[in-house]
Design a protein around this nucleic acid. Sequence first.
DNA 1: TTCTGTGTACTATCTCACTAGTACATTGAG
DNA 2: CTCAATGTACTAGTGAGATAGTACACAGAA
Lengths: 130, 130
Amino acid sequence: MFAFRVLDRSGVPAYLQLVDQVRRGLLLGHLQEGDQLPTVRAVASAVVINPNTVAKAYRELEHAGLAVARAGQGTFVTGNIEQVPAATYARLSGRLRQWFADAREAGLAPEQVRAMVDAVMDDERRRETA
Amino acid sequence: MFAFRVLDRSGVPAYLQLVDQVRRGLLLGHLQEGDQLPTVRAVASAVVINPNTVAKAYRELEHAGLAVARAGQGTFVTGNIEQVPAATYARLSGRLRQWFADAREAGLAPEQVRAMVDAVMDDERRRETA
DNA sequence: TTCTGTGTACTATCTCACTAGTACATTGAG
DNA sequence: CTCAATGTACTAGTGAGATAGTACACAGAA
């Protein structure tokens, strides 16, 4: 069963964090079509948020065509998204993890590492919109 | 003069985005002690947000010891933060940019790239707290 | 001094994410 | 059918972020 991460205080709404995690799971192949998501009440009690907040996330997923809810049964993800090929994923994620390891090795604090990633990603985003 | 990025709709409060950008600038050496930040009113008109929101960000920076406000003159950053050594920064950011270029080359959509980065960073964060 | 530009303070208002509590509809097992 | 578990709907309220508008205090230049 898919497990949601504990929510932080980043300012990102909880329901959006849940949506993003499911979307990410699908993109990276951690979730496959037909997989069942934890029930609304299970997520609510596990992550300690209101069931309505979870329900809102699931509604959002259904609206985006990424999941289907069946009363009495649960919520199941659909494959309406382009997954990253497993081989590509393995290769690139490995290199990325290596980069993080090297950054730690170089003595960078987590905050500094995050700053670098954010800075480069900002540039990437700028490139997309350009 | 430091330039703030246009704000997105990520759910992160605008004033926090401003704070993070200054902190990042200091961490990565894009900002040096004594550098002046754009005035409250300048940022407000450039990014199209309320001056009060910018003032809140600047107050936050001052409270964190990262900036000093001088009435009639402006707000200036201080060096109370550990910067990434320039050589380390150049080497690591170069490799990171290369990784992004390879990801694009592999045909990954921006959304997929971001999902991979988020996933790996989540793991890193988990490692920190562990 | 006067003027201008700066940061700051204050109140009121609005929106939205989230909480709280309750009730209902559907599904499948017994 | 009965029951439990599921997703769903609804109303009301709380709090934070943001806006709007005004006013004030300080610094520097004319």
